[in-house]
């Protein structure tokens, strides 16, 4: 317990910046992310990308795990409706997204902490904008307390 307090202090001393887990599908949003890079667009260093082949691979558990491990927010990126490389994976993703949203509501987690965006391979600019916006929102919202709460429950 003692140690935890100390750790927390160090965290705040370092000036907290949000950490956002970004889960991108390989064909659209990951490619858009590459495009943003190639175009040298600038956005804050708040995201950490995990690549999956299709947003249909999104398991709600990914989200819950990320929150309980300390993610301040999660951004899911997939192809636009009708454009999924595997035809319909993004629709399945959308369904799960709604489910997770409901669950988050019950858990009293601010809805802004989870965002789903359809970003096509050509929309590098959009990707940079979304990350910029999200960083701003989450910075205002402050650090997520879920990790702390989960740790308390487990105790």
């Amino acid at each position: 317990m003692q140690e935890e307090v100390k750790n927390n202090n160090i965290q705040t001393a370092k000036a907290w910046k949000p950490k956002i887990l970004a889960i991108f599908c390989n064909w659209c949003t990951y490619t858009a992310s590459d495009l943003a890079g190639v175009s040298r667009l600038k956005y804050p260093a708040t995201t950490r990308v995990v690549r999956i082949m299709c947003s249909g691979r999104l398991d709600p558990q990914f989200i819950l795990t990320a929150f309980s491990e300390g993610a301040d927010a999660i951004l899911i990126g997939g192809c636009h409706p009708g454009d999924c490389h595997y035809a319909t994976g993004n629709y399945k993703c959308l369904r799960r997204f709604h489910l997770i949203q409901k669950y988050m509501k019950q858990m009293n987690i601010e809805p802004e902490r989870l965002r789903l965006e359809w970003i096509s391979a050509s929309e590098g600019k959009r990707l940079a904008e979304v990350i910029g916006e999200m960083t701003e929102t989450i910075t205002k919202l402050g650090q997520s307390k879920i990790k702390q709460q989960v740790a308390n429950i487990e105790k």
Partner: peptide, 10 residues
């Protein structure tokens, strides 16, 4: 995937 996600934060 889970170890990747955990690895990012822990």
């Amino acid at each position: 995937i889970f170890s990747e996600i955990k690895g990012i934060f822990v």
